[in-house]
Nucleic acid binder design. Structure first.
Lengths: 208, 208
DNA sequence: CAAAAAAGTTGAACTCGTTCATGTTTGTCG
DNA sequence: CGACAAACATGAACGAGTTCAACTTTTTTG
């Protein structure tokens, strides 16, 4: 049976996370104080720290939910990619990008990325890094899928290329969240300019 | 003539920077307090803030000196790259990597990178971003140089490829500084595994 | 059911980056 | 040289993340 204590704990954690999602989005990660979250969640400041190690932990928890969704949407593309190497890659990448601002602000992404670099040893950092790794694996899987379909030359190194493409899309995304004025449209066209030439290099002859 | 005031100012700034280089490397960016720097530089805490906007500014100033050196060493490779596409690219990249830990610790790199992502609008962030851009330009220049030499196919998009390669080497470097246990050797072989296959794709037929 | 143990909550106190009103030093002008 | 202005240095005070010793609540035990 679910003891009273357990229910209360789960409830408090949910309330804190809910407060975080709401306030981070509304006022920005930095403007929100732990005290604000505690107040909305109807717990004390100390209690927040019983559920999350640091303020950054709370952000990562929020961001991780979003990335899980992105991964799920990407899985659909990998299973049945559109025709054409460039089209398939961009379908996956645009899927990532379009999802990214659904629940999170650029400021939240910036802070989360900064955290993952600065504190790689914490549960925070490791969790975010793991999500990055899974995204890279998904890109690699797509390439393998395109090789199996005969659209990509079978002498390309799927691992190397998947990693390279992930690096490119990730770096582009960093530039996107760093510049508040940059539109999703500009992000899309930016990565397309890189993926296009690359796709041409790895296509099989027959697809030309 | 250099007035007394000017000399004193320059002197103080140098002392603060010197204290930062010494202490950041010895104890880590985070462990060092502004008060520690002030003490070593024989100024007050407030004075430190007269010369640098934030603690991060001081770090960026230190890191920027290092990156300028890296850019200078890279320029030599671009001017006269070794034979072979892969060899030339790796000569440039290894040059970057080997330089990177000469004066800076991994923790300093992590903090600097995190800063540039989190505070892109500050003088800090912009300066670091600008250095990144110049590194990407240098990679692009090398590719152009290899095209001119006939080693790289002249139908490849030098800009797109330069940016992609920069993203890859940068992402790899991020993984390197995130993992204190990762050796320079592992970093080198990691990027080589990505650059190798890519180089084969862009080489002219004759070089095969 | 009562008492002890376990688990969790609390908010005051601590740290450190940053700011600002005040004081001091340097340069300039009569 | 003396007095005024400008520039600069100073450190106490403030804000926000984090910690921890004391207190409450829930569970277990006899």
């Amino acid at each position: 049976m679910a003891g009273l204590r357990e229910r209360q704990k789960a409830d408090r954690e949910r309330r804190i996370l809910r407060a975080a999602v709401t306030q981070f989005r509304a006022d920005g990660y930095h403007s929100v104080r732990i005290e604000d979250l505690a107040e909305m969640a109807e717990v004390s400041v100390g209690t927040v720290y019983n559920y999350y190690r640091t303020k950054g932990d709370i952000l990562i928890a929020v961001v991780a939910m979003e990335v899980e969704e992105v991964l799920a949407s990407g899985a659909a593309v990998v299973t049945d990619p559109p025709d054409g190497v460039c089209e398939a890659l961009l379908a996956l990448i645009f899927g990532y990008y379009d999802h990214s601002l659904e629940y999170l602000s650029k400021e939240m992404w910036r802070s989360a990325m900064a955290l993952s670099i600065e504190a790689p040893g914490t549960p925070n950092g490791r969790r975010y890094t793991e999500l990055d790794r899974r995204l890279a694996v998904q890109v690699t899987d797509l390439i393998r899928s395109l090789i199996a379909r005969g659209e990509v030359r079978d002498d390309v190194d799927a691992n190397a290329l998947g990693q390279i493409i992930f690096s490119a899309l990730n770096q582009m995304f960093i530039e996107f969240v760093k510049d508040d004025a940059m539109t999703l449209e500009a992000l899309r066209s930016g990565i397309a300019k890189q993926i296009g030439p690359l796709a041409r290099l790895i296509e099989t002859e027959t697809t030309r």
